[in-house]
Structures are given as C-alpha cells and as structure tokens.
C-alpha cells in the first residue's frame, strides 16, 4: 500500500488531524458550489471562506479544493516538497485519497507556491472516449491579479474575460494553447492564491493582450 511508509512525528501526526471541515457536508457543498460557478464562468475569481485550515505548504484554497474534490477513489499528485510535508497525512486522514508519484495516474495534482509547473502533457490527458479521465491541476500563484492581462474566450464567457494572474511562467500561453488543441482531451486548471481561485477549463482559450 502506498501509505505506511513514514511514521510522522507525534507533532506532525497531530497537525494531520487538524484543519478539516468542522461540518463536512455543508461546508464542502459551499466550496463545491464556488468551484462549480468558477468552472462555469472561466476567469472569474471566487473567494472561499476559511472553513479549511490546511498545513503548509498548502494555501487555504488548495486545502478547501482538496477536501472537497478528493476521496478514497482519487489519486493525487503532489510536488516532492509537499510529499515530504504533513500534507499527505492530512489529505489521507480527511479525504481518504492516496498520493501517487505518477502524474499520468493522478486525477488531481497540486502545485504549491514557489514550485515550478510541470509540463501539462505529463499529466493524464483523458482519452477520446473518456475525456473526463484527465488530471485537474490546482496551481498556487502569488496573486490572481496584477500580472500581464490575458483575454479568455470560450464557453461560459459571453465575449471576453480578462484575467491577470501573477507568477505564471511566460511560456504559459503557449502551453495552454497546446492543451487547448487536444480538445476534447486535455487538463483543466484551477489557479489559487490564498483564499481566492479562478478556473480555466480546457475549453477556454487565452490570448495575450498584444495578440
């Protein structure tokens, strides 16, 4: 079994038990609703409440998304730094999800602040028959505003939606265009910053303002 490899210190194991939903049914439903709205309206920022208090290096939004979407049937990929933290124990206790080191086997992947974004194509991209079998990436940024503006178009956006997340790699629009070209396959993206999040489903196209 993937667990049981490390016995966390007492302090760490105590931290693993803290910070979950106090009222899992209703609080996770509230987060789910916010996520659903964010996916349906790509680029619009949703702010979550503080119902989840995850251990470092996860932000509140990352933690809330994790405990809302993960369960015993999902495999989750974490960065090596997050894998070495108390986060795997915290996720395991509160959601039952197992951590995998295989990006292509992960239904969800989390990249915390300060970590580089792995190539999108290294994750599960789904199949033509089952495009839903792709990875949903959750990526923490310094802020969801203040960066170079990008124009988003696609389902859920009437004309265009401007987003300006800070901290994305300069090559991101190219990576996203490659992902978009795989449609209906491809990954979906949730960008988080603190308690905020916005979604970029694979159906959304992005252009830099100059293009």
């Amino acid at each position: 079994m993937p667990h049981s490899q490390q016995t966390p210190s007492h302090k760490n194991s105590q931290r693993a038990y803290a910070g979950g939903f106090a009222d899992p049914v209703f609080q996770s439903q509230a987060v789910f609703r916010a996520l659903m709205d964010a996916m349906a309206r790509p680029g619009r920022i949703q702010t979550l409440d503080d119902s989840v208090d995850p251990p470092a290096p996860f932000s509140r939004a990352m933690g809330a998304v994790a405990l809302t979407l993960l369960d015993a049937d999902t495999a989750v990929w974490l960065t090596p730094a997050a894998r070495a933290s108390v986060v795997p124990s915290w996720i395991s206790f509160h959601s039952g999800a197992r951590v995998t080191e295989d990006k292509a086997a992960a239904q969800f992947a989390f990249v915390e602040a300060g970590q580089s974004l792995p190539p999108l194509s290294s994750f599960a991209l789904g199949t033509q028959d089952y495009p839903d079998r792709s990875t949903t990436l959750v990526v923490e940024l310094p802020a969801l505003g203040g960066g170079a503006p990008l124009l988003a178009r696609g389902p859920g956006i009437e004309t265009t939606q401007t987003i300006a997340p800070s901290g994305l790699p300069p090559i991101f629009t190219t990576l996203w265009r490659d992902n978009r070209a795989l449609f209906p396959r491809g990954v979906d993206l949730i960008l988080t910053a603190g308690s905020d999040l916005l979604c970029l489903p694979r159906s959304t196209s992005l252009q830099t303002a100059e293009e």
Partner: peptide, 8 residues
C-alpha cells in the same frame, strides 16, 4: 482496512 494514521 489499511489505515495510514495507525501504521497497521
């Protein structure tokens, strides 16, 4: 059932 928090 394998229980990570127990170690057994």
């Amino acid at each position: 059932i394998e229980t990570p928090e127990l170690g057994f």
